[in-house]
Simulated scan of single mutants.
Amino acid sequence: MDDVSTAAEGQRRRTRDRRGRGMRGPGVLPERPGTPALRTARQRFDQLVLDVVAPLDERWQRHLGLVEYAVEDTPMLPDDWGDETVPLSSLVRGKGTGPTRLVVFRRPIEHRATTHDELRAMVHLVVVEQLAELLDLTPGDIDERYAD
């Protein structure tokens, strides 16, 4: 009896490695070979900012002029900043032929948002407020959804 049970165990296919962890490697294969299957948090945030900025920039392009949009991880704060809140964005007006630069800071915004919808709403809020300041209008004039 013991000989039969050990022979059956020896023929059984092993689906796990010797430490019992199972198969290693990616759980998802990429659609195109050579590209990562899953995007990083930074890439997802960049895409979110683009999705928010595109319709606003298209609508206000005539009034805005040349605006450069950027995403940075964190703002560079001076040593004497103190206990003030960390900025969520920065607006640097262009000089001469230089473009105006609107920078959205990823980490402070992600830190304040708990869900993806909240993150999207916060990015929208920040971009609308900065465009309103740039155009010297109220945020409600820039986007009627601002009050929501």
Rank of each mutant, 00 (worst) to 15 (best):
D3Q: 15
V4T: 12
V4K: 09
V4S: 11
V4C: 03
S5E: 13
S5D: 09
E9V: 08
E9S: 12
G10A: 12
G10L: 12
R12M: 08
R14N: 10
D17P: 10
R19P: 00
R21W: 09
G22Q: 10
R24I: 02
G27C: 01
P30E: 08
E31V: 11
E31R: 11
R32H: 08
P36Q: 10
L38K: 10
T40L: 02
L48H: 02
L48N: 01
L48P: 05
V53W: 15
L56R: 10
R59F: 05
W60L: 14
Q61K: 13
G65T: 08
V67L: 13
V71T: 14
T74Y: 04
P75M: 02
P78N: 09
D80I: 02
W81V: 06
G82A: 12
E84P: 01
V86P: 01
P87N: 03
L88H: 13
S89I: 04
S89A: 15
L91T: 14
V92S: 13
R93N: 02
K95R: 15
T97F: 07
G98I: 00
G98K: 13
P99S: 15
V103A: 06
P108C: 05
T115C: 02
E118R: 10
L119K: 07
R120I: 00
R120L: 03
R120N: 03
R120E: 12
M122D: 11
M122G: 01
V123Q: 06
L125F: 15
V127L: 15
V128H: 12
E129L: 04
L135F: 11
L137H: 15
T138K: 13
T138I: 00
P139G: 06
G140P: 01
I142M: 08
R145W: 03
A147Y: 05
A147Q: 14
